[in-house]
Computed example of a mutant assay.
Amino acid sequence: MQTVHGINFAPFSPRGALAGDAVRDELRRMHRLTGADTVIFCPGAVQATPFTETIDFTGAHTTADEELLAITRAAKDLGLRVFWKPTVNCLDGTWRAHISFFDHDVPCEPKWGPWFDGYTAFQTHFAALAQQAGIELLILGCEMTKTEHREEEWRACISSVRSVYDGAVAYNCDKYGEAFVPWWDAVDVMASSGYYPVDAIGENLDRIRPLVEKAAKPFFFAEAGCMRVRGSAQVPNDWTLQGEPDDEEQNRWYQALFAAMETRPWLRGAALWDWPLDAAHDNPYAFSRAPALQTIRSAWNREQK
């Protein structure tokens, strides 16, 4: 697998948001300013709560198929590799890692079976579309921590995806979760969310390396980022952190990330979080108008020479 210099672009965009010239202009701007060689699009599905069996991937919260295909073509025209990461989120704001049900069926309680049926339908829908679009890597979800022990269901889901899609398949576990996915052998690429404290990035990479070598799979960070908020560099995964705006906090974290990555060539890069649309460039994780942008561009320029 070629090293990833990537960005998650406008993740979980609602229907209609990725259509039009303005979005393609923003994609070109992202490419020009960062020097990225890969973009990840994240079509989102929704469920009401972490305990809801039904998943909606056809409504207003999900990018329309034709939009996704069009923005994918635009990215490929720029010379970008395109990965897709279909991801489910909870409408009540609960982080998707908490989606869970009883491990034994109980009458009148929600169950794993119907949920995995819906999740598999969601993933296979986008897998069939990914086959049509020629997507190089399909990432079957992100940070689904409390589902990962359901090995039989995950293997069946991956098998269903492979029945309609012949490209490479990956999964994006949460930070610190790399050792707890019992079905890594079923995917082609391992990925995690690299939101590690600024002074612990290297030690966590060193912790991950033996797992990757044992699995003999490529590994990259499908997400990695830090907010422009004082204190975020120590808890970059905490999107609820409140504090003073601090562009240099974010920049310092990115400098540490790239320094750690440059000495560990077994790590196949990272896809940064994130590049939003329009006024959302003010969101705390965005780096498009911050000093970290130059840090990112400089690091990728060095790596691509």
Rank of each mutant, 00 (worst) to 15 (best):
R268V: 03
Q234H: 13
V82T: 07
L68D: 05
N301I: 10
F219E: 07
P210N: 05
W183M: 08
K217Q: 02
T240G: 11
T38M: 14
T147E: 11
I139N: 05
A290G: 00
G93M: 14
V161C: 03
L138T: 09
Q132I: 00
T49Q: 01
S13H: 02
E151W: 01
E66N: 12
H31I: 04
W275N: 08
T263W: 00
F51E: 10
A271M: 10
T49F: 10
R81N: 05
R207M: 04
F116N: 07
L267A: 03
W95I: 03
R162F: 06
P291S: 11
T62L: 06
D188R: 05
A191D: 06
Q250C: 09
T94I: 14
S298T: 15
V23I: 11
R32E: 15
V235D: 02
L137K: 13
L78E: 13
R268H: 14
A74V: 00
D278I: 00
T49D: 03
I296S: 09
R162V: 01
K111D: 12
P218A: 11
G93L: 15
V229L: 12
R162H: 11
A10N: 06
D246W: 06
A259E: 15
V46M: 13
T263M: 03
P197W: 12
A286C: 15
T38N: 10
E248C: 02
E67N: 07
N283F: 02
D105E: 14
T120I: 01
G134S: 07
T124I: 01
V164W: 04
C108L: 12
Q47E: 05
G167C: 12
W273V: 08
S160Q: 05
L272M: 11
E143A: 13
S298H: 12
M30F: 14
K85S: 06
S160V: 00
V82Y: 00
A60L: 05
E66L: 09
G59P: 04
P245H: 09
V23K: 02
P245L: 11
K111C: 12
A10S: 13
P11L: 06
F221G: 00
I99P: 04
Q294N: 15
A299W: 01
R230Y: 14
N172S: 15
G202Y: 06
